[in-house]
């Protein structure tokens, strides 16, 4: 079992964490194709990614910058840096 060297709480077994993938922001005023792309497609290109992780025992979300090619943790990201406001989606008539 892998360990995640979490900059917040140190090395913990990976099984304590949930991983939801890269930080993504829902597009506003999206047409059908753009929205479908947001929902179903992931870039998944190897390299440094900002990812959302959840540590179940403490109930904490955090954003990790990690090199997915080398599996090296670069550091924590301030959630304020990737904050967004919920879009206003008008249903087309």
């Amino acid at each position: 079992m892998k360990l995640l060297d979490c900059p917040g709480i140190g090395k913990r077994p990976i099984s304590e964490f949930d991983y939801v993938g890269a930080v993504r922001i829902p597009p506003s005023d999206a047409d059908e194709a753009t929205w479908a792309d947001y929902v179903f497609n992931r870039d998944n290109a190897p390299g440094v990614m900002r990812e959302r992780w959840y540590h179940r025992p403490t109930g904490r979300w955090f954003i990790l910058e990690r090199n997915t090619l080398t599996d090296e943790v670069v550091g924590l990201v301030d959630p304020a840096d990737v904050r967004y406001k919920e879009p206003n989606y008008e249903v087309p008539a």
Binding site: R56, W61, A80, R83, E86
Partner: peptide, 15 residues
């Protein structure tokens, strides 16, 4: 557990 997780995620996402 998932409901709690989702609620706390949205708190972080939207600040």
């Amino acid at each position: 557990a998932a409901a709690f997780r989702t609620l706390s995620l949205k708190i972080q996402e939207l600040g």
